[in-house]
């Protein structure tokens, strides 16, 4: 017994070193797999507070760009107003239905909530965006994030009571379902960790006609984003030798250096969709079992 104590005293520094190393590595690897950081709830609140203070100053530098974006969205919305449209036919009158959520079949699938980016990097291989809205404001994991003019920014991966961390498109583990605007072909957006101005669109078959400058938008099969939000434009067309698919370099529509105001998108049907998927998988697996 005495020897054990002597041993511990002698190697106390090394044992502490070993313990702290294991602790850090446990933090690191458990986070990388599940995006669930230990003690993130408390830490996120604290870093969020500090980031908010710094963000107050930083925001001034991007006001011009942000105003331009807002003005552009306003412009597009104002152009949609019914007062802009006249009918040649004098017997019919254009009327706008002020009650779109009715029993006739309209219902709401996506809800948007505004938020402000308080911290954001583009230099790492895994870039995160901290937003000043959290679970108290109804933000949950896997919600989509778009900029104030509707360009795709990322997906929420972790929330604390008043702040949320979103994985931006510039994250090597990021995969977002996207499609070509012209042909509607589905693919996946990924990032190779190299240039923060470009992401990569994979899984587009070679049979599709693709040209530089084509728009890439969020697809109709995404659970996270409503269809039609712009991701970027194709900058380079390459082909993947191994799979016979295209490897398209996409210039991101948004400049990740100066994101300021964002919208967080909730899919109200997500739970139901996920449940259906799980149950389908279960059903198929059961049917495969022998003797039934």
């Amino acid at each position: 017994m005495r020897n054990i104590f002597l041993f511990i005293r002698r190697y106390a520094a090394f044992i502490t070193f070993f313990f702290l190393q294991v602790l850090s590595l446990w933090f690191l690897f458990s986070y990388n797999r599940f995006h669930r950081a230990k003690f993130l709830g408390i830490a996120n609140e604290l870093t969020g507070r500090v980031n908010t203070q710094f963000n107050k100053v930083e925001d001034f530098f991007y006001l011009r760009e942000e105003n331009r974006r807002l003005n552009r969205v306003n412009d597009s919305l104002m152009n949609l107003q019914p007062v802009n449209f006249l009918s040649r036919d004098t017997t019919s009158q254009l009327s706008h239905d002020s009650l779109p959520y009715d029993t006739v079949g309209h219902y709401r699938r996506f809800v948007m909530r505004p938020g402000t980016v308080v911290y954001n990097t583009v230099n790492a291989q895994k870039n995160y965006i901290q937003i000043n809205r959290g679970s108290n404001q109804g933000i949950r994991d896997k919600m989509g994030v778009v900029s104030s003019d509707g360009k795709v920014v990322g997906v929420v991966v972790n929330v604390s009571p008043n702040f949320a961390e979103a994985m931006s498109l510039l994250h090597i583990q990021n995969t977002i379902s996207a499609s070509l605007k012209k042909s509607g072909e589905f693919g996946t957006i990924e990032w190779d960790g190299k240039n923060p101005g470009y992401v990569i669109l994979k899984k587009i078959p070679k049979s599709v006609d693709v040209k530089v400058g084509d728009s890439v938008i969020t697809s109709t099969v995404s659970f996270t984003f409503p269809p039609g939000f712009l991701v970027g434009t194709i900058a380079e067309v390459k082909s993947d030798q191994s799979s016979g698919m295209y490897l398209l370099r996409v210039k991101t529509a948004i400049n990740f250096n100066n994101i300021q105001q964002v919208h967080i998108i909730e899919n109200l049907e997500r739970d139901e969709q996920m449940k259906l998927m799980d149950e389908t998988r279960k059903k198929i697996e059961e049917a495969k079992k022998p003797g039934q």
Binding site: A13, T16, F17, L20, Q21, L23, S24, L25, W26, F27, L28, F29, Y31, A37, K38, L40, A43, N44, L46, T47, V50, N51, Y119, T121, A124, K126, Y128, E165
Partner: peptide
């Protein structure tokens, strides 16, 4: 020193969302 080092790294980690990387 070890504990000071650990918490220095961990503070930076929580800002950068890489828990444990700089701490190690």
């Amino acid at each position: 020193l070890l504990f000071v080092g650990f918490f220095t790294g961990l503070i930076l980690d929580y800002f950068m969302m890489t828990p444990g990387l700089h701490a190690a």
